[in-house]
Amino acid sequence: MKNKDANLVIVGCGRLGSYLANRLSREGYSVVVIDRSSQTFDNLTPAFSGFKVEGDATQISVLNAAKLKAAEVLIATTHDDNVNLWVAQVARTIFGVARVLARVFDPRREQIYAELGIQTICPTSVAAELFIQAVLGDGNAKGPVI
């Protein structure tokens, strides 16, 4: 993504969410971060120049407060797969967000949501792929992870 005026909404401000928020804010994107607990906003660096919204992202009013309608990208990073899948689908279907990504821990849930147009990233599959690459060397690691 080249457009630095793009608005990003990140749901969840834990380790992954805050890392993404800090990094993408530093890169010059306009970032809104949502979390149920305002304590997690301590994970943001002083250089973070985006907005913080405290609230439950499964509620439409909270997504409205985060101005999701004006966002080009939504990233759902909470620790609950189902929250991420809920928020991702709402962002796509109701708010018409162009690009929607969700972290999903359970690889068995990935396929069905790919069919529904939600791009999921599964930390287990990604880590497994990297381990296999490290063990077998680059050339042998192109196949799918079982």
Binding site: D81, N82, L85, W86, I112, L116
Partner: peptide, 16 residues
């Protein structure tokens, strides 16, 4: 008691 769980349960049941 969680709407997000109910959504995923119904989608998995229907689609999978």
């Amino acid at each position: 008691p969680h709407d997000q769980d109910n959504l995923v349960i119904c989608q998995l049941a229907r689609l999978q």
